[in-house]
Design a binder for these strands. Structure first.
Length: 892
RNA sequence: GGGAUCAUAGCUCAGCUGGGAGAGCAUUCGCUUGACGUGCGAAAGGUCACAGGUUCGAGCCCUGUUGGUCCCACCA
């Protein structure tokens, strides 16, 4: 051993160094190689404005675990990274930077502003990818992409033109969600409804009489949450079957303040049960009213400016904010005697998920993607299993959206983003949608062409991510080889924004699904179960955690003790536990290497292995099979737990302790067999742990195998994943060793109960008539003695020569006597045995009950019946042993 | 209004297709055990929310109830 591990586990010392080694060695890079099967993950591109938060950490840890696992399994593993231009987030960010310098976006102009954004991106856009490196992400940075790089731009334009040509993109005046703060339209998915206390204003409009004038006696009363929108009312509606208002069908009411007559329309949209059964209709400022308006051919009156203030259609309220106008209008209605009452009312207000501003529904010219046709293959793909969602319950959420899909508003009144490839002739108004600007108008020949001012929703480009990153629309070898990708790992919170849109885009443009499986994870919450948020200030910075505990500990914490798709709480104590585990691995490895120091360890002959060596190999073999299976089923938490248990319990607490006495034994073969087994079990354990804790496992692996003839690879990340082999299964040895372990535990238990100090050694007797048991103890004598604190161990077939006062431990087919002589309290020992006898009697009764139940015997599977029979046999036998011993003590 | 999900040890959560309740942390007791006190050994702690049902057998399946969380819809 030419190198040694440092005395203490210090992640900060190694992590950066190892990452650099990996990246520069090209281990992350994947090339098209038809001799190998590809395994591909596309990284959900973090925003260039982003700072690594726990959500990213979880998301990328999971991806890295999968990709490292598959890479070790021999797949050609590609993890495709990149970043998202995040149009609105970035634009807002840069605008506020400029504001600090006293610069206004509009004064600067579009071109200059975009230059500033690109500058900003050059300076800060790479921050998040640096942070992802700290996590240990083994993505192919050589293939890093950006949603606004040349290739992605091309893909976006191509898709837009394709969809337009197919009639799946259209421009039209629809009611859209308008953010008066960001000054842009947003999609339905970006609206977040927040419950807010407000009022319900009950207002009455006079009915218009035959003379065309408002009646002074007859009124129609209704309730509204937004009285200011009355300025844009163009009707009131009642349900056609509502007998209270039959007499008003075909008539009109008088719209106060505006002073004009508006019709009473009949529409089933009205709920007769709610309020008075009358609804004022404002097609310009309410999505439902817009629909009603369309059905009844009502005019649309827009009373609002883009900044949310009342416009010239609001008459004297022109220029007021909506809230000021509301108060003033209510006051005016009151003075006219038209305000009936005001009730407290709590209702959901649509807000912009980015800035929190109240959304104004407005009618505007926007671009839309027609969804009803596009969504069909996406729906079908999940329905027929072409794409699998994990956990499967996510199907319901998915279908809930696909079944209620509405057209997607894709235009944004922003500058930072993909500009819509629509061009207009300034002379004749002709619109041309094309991949590049036409030189002249195809209709009138004019050269005065301007491009549409709007940009596209950020998610329009992210929807293409699985194939745009692989080169589409070019027919690249990468696209052919790596597409469809295998797994998409993401949070369930962006299923609507992103997952569905990638799926329908994949089917539409590639003719194939973008990925086979979507693995959802939950949210990372704080210790009290609250969402981590900037406003609450309860976010835990992953970088600080890495600084303090190491990336390995952070990663391990994020994937353990959690089921797929469930939220998790993140606490310092949990990271500490993970760090302690890493420390354990570190020290165990250090100890192993210490003992190998200066020795020439060679592969032992099969017959030189001891039962305990075969036991650990067999246990390892089983855990390899289980962990591999869990990984393949995306049960990362379970897999991590099993690796943890194996290393901690089987390897450290038992195996190492069991073979310690052999390290410096005179029997060179024994020492060699023990150390060789130990080393190979450690290597395989490190491999199983590597996807979860890449750094520590690499450091140990490299140190451990340095200069080793059998060294498999220069890095554990390109070594081979352990496989289950029948040759490594030794069931008999497993049973034997487990029996001895049981005896050890029994003795430790008694020592602890009776307060026998460690220094007090006793001569232990194993009494058994069973030759196999005798043999087992014979071969395990060495460690049995040391682990049970025995001075010596005598194995014999009867209890001759054993002190009557000895304490006893019963295991199957054997009684172990520990004569602690002066320490033993016979009364206590009797009580202990009585208690044990009672327990066994209970177990026997239970087994007998089951086995004498005809229905159980006829219906239960045979394996279960045999299992119960064996248990009964064992309990009966133990019962005999205990009662014999008890009788003996009683006779004295 | 529709849907999802949770309720298991003091706390945070696992528990895969139904076959004798688990982990981590915390607690108690013991340990100068030659890798690790970021450690070792041991113990205590649970009518698996409640009520029914299916089954030879239910933490797990079904129905209902209660309480929490979340998503969607947006009755003005």
């Amino acid at each position: 051993m030419s190198r040694e591990l440092a005395k203490t586990y210090d992640p900060s010392d190694m992590e950066g160094r190892l990452y650099e080694k990996w990246e520069s060695s090209g281990y992350f890079h994947a090339e098209v190689d038809r001799s190998k099967k590809p395994f591909t993950i596309v990284m959900p591109p973090p925003n260039i404005t982003g700072q690594l938060h726990m959500g990213h950490a979880l998301d990328n840890t999971m991806q890295d675990i999968l990709i490292r696992f598959k890479r070790m399994q021999g797949y050609n593993a590609l993890w495709q990274p990149g970043t998202d231009h995040a149009s609105i987030a970035t634009e807002v960010r840069v605008m506020s930077e400029l504001k600090k310098q006293g610069i206004d976006k509009h004064e600067l102009g579009r071109e200059k502003f975009l230059e500033r954004v690109w500058d900003w991106r050059r300076e800060y856009g790479g921050r998040i990818t640096k942070q992802l490196r700290k996590l240990g992400s083994s993505c192919d940075w050589q293939r890093e992409r950006f949603t606004m790089d040349e290739g992605c731009n091309k893909a976006v334009t191509r898709v837009f033109v394709n969809l337009y040509d197919k009639g799946l993109i259209y421009k039209g005046a629809r009611i859209i969600n308008w953010c008066p703060v960001c000054n842009t339209s947003i999609s339905d998915a970006e609206v977040e409804y927040v419950e807010q206390p407000s009022h319900l204003w009950h207002i009455k409009y006079p009915v218009v009489g035959d003379d065309g004038k408002p009646s002074t006696t007859e009124f129609l009363t209704f309730a509204t949450t937004r009285p200011e929108t009355m300025l844009g009312d163009t009707a009131v509606a009642v349900h056609p079957d509502d007998e209270r208002y039959t007499h008003l069908h075909g008539r009109s009411v008088w719209l106060p303040i505006v002073n004009k007559a508006i019709p009473v329309v009949e529409d089933t949209y009205v709920d007769m049960e709610f309020g008075t059964g009358v609804v004022k209709i404002t097609p310009g400022h309410d999505p439902n009213d817009f629909e009603v308006g369309k059905r009844h051919n009502l005019p649309i009156v827009n009373v609002m400016n883009d900044d949310g203030t009342i416009n010239e259609n609001g008459g004297k309220y022109n220029g007021m904010t909506d809230m000021d106008a509301r108060a003033a209008i209510v006051e005016e209605l009151k003075s006219q005697g038209l305000l009936v009452k005001i009730e407290d009312y709590s209702h959901n207000v649509g807000t912009h998920d980015r800035c929190g501003a109240t959304i104004q529904p407005l009618v505007k010219q926007q671009w839309f993607v027609k969804m009803d046709e596009l969504i069909k293959p996406a729906e079908e793909g999940v329905k027929n299993g072409d794409i699998k969602l994990v956990p499967p319950r996510m199907d319901r959420t998915y279908f809930n959206w696909t079944e209620n899909i509405r057209d997607w508003c894709i235009s944004r009144q922003l500058w930072w983003g993909h500009r819509i490839p629509a061009y207009y002739c300034s002379d004749c108004g002709e619109m041309i949608v094309a991949e590049s600007a036409p030189e002249k108008c195809p209709k009138c020949g004019s050269v005065h062409i301007t491009q549409d001012e709007d940009t596209l929703d950020t998610w329009f480009s992210s929807a293409l991510w699985p194939f745009s990153t692989l080169g589409w629309p070019e027919k690249t070898p990468e696209l052919d080889y790596f597409y469809p990708t295998d797994v998409l790992v993401t949070g369930y919170d962006i299923i609507f924004f992103w997952v569905i849109r990638m799926i329908f885009s994949g089917y539409e443009h590639m003719g194939a699904k973008p990925f086979s499986t979507v693995l959802f994870h939950g949210l990372v919450r704080d210790g009290q179960g609250r969402k981590m948020s900037k406003s609450l200030g309860n976010g835990i910075d992953p970088l600080e955690v890495i600084e303090k505990y190491g990336a390995d500990a952070l990663r391990f914490t994020l994937v353990t003790g959690n089921a797929p798709g469930n939220d998790m709480r993140f606490t310092d104590e949990r990271v500490e536990a993970s760090r302690n585990f890493a420390n354990k691995v570190w020290n165990a490895s250090r100890f192993i290497m210490m003992n190998m120091e200066g020795k020439n360890i060679t592969r032992p002959a099969d017959e030189d292995l001891w039962p305990v060596d075969r036991w650990v190999l067999s246990r390892l073999n089983n855990v390899v099979a289980e962990v591999t299976d869990n990984m393949e089923k995306y049960e990362l938490g379970i897999a991590a737990g099993k690796v943890y248990d194996f290393i901690y319990d089987v390897l450290c607490d038992w195996y190492i302790e069991m073979i310690k006495p052999r390290f410096n034994s005179d029997d060179a073969k024994s020492a060699n067999a023990a150390l060789y087994t130990l080393k190979s079990v450690l290597i395989d354990s490190l491999k199983l742990l590597h996807p979860f804790m890449p750094f520590i496992t690499e450091e140990i692996f490299c140190t451990l195998t340095e200069g080793d003839e059998e060294r498999e690879a220069d890095s554990i990340m390109i070594s081979s994943w352990p496989v289950f082999t029948k040759q490594r299964q030794f069931e008999e040895d497993e049973a034997q060793i487990e029996l001895i372990k049981e005896a050890v535990r029994g003795i430790r238990n008694i020592r602890s109960e009776m307060n026998v100090p460690q220094s007090k050694k006793a001569n232990v007797f194993v009494v058994t008539g069973d030759e196999d048991v005798a043999k087992a103890f014979e071969s395990g004598r060495l460690f049995f003695e040391s682990l049970s604190g025995a001075a010596s161990c005598t194995i014999q077939s009867d209890r001759s020569g054993i002190d009557d006062d000895a304490v006893s431990v019963m295991i199957a087919n054997a009684v172990i006597y520990i004569p602690f002589a002066e320490l033993v309290d016979i009364a206590a020992e009797k009580a202990r045995l009585e208690k044990e006898l009672g327990r066994l009697a209970g177990e026997i009764k239970r087994c007998e009950g089951m086995l004498s139940n005809d229905k159980f015997m006829s219906k239960a599977p045979e394996a279960k019946i045999n299992e119960e029979k064996e248990k009964l046999e064992k309990y009966r036998q133990l019962h005999v042993q205990v009662s014999e011993r008890l009788d003996m003590l009683k006779k004295r």
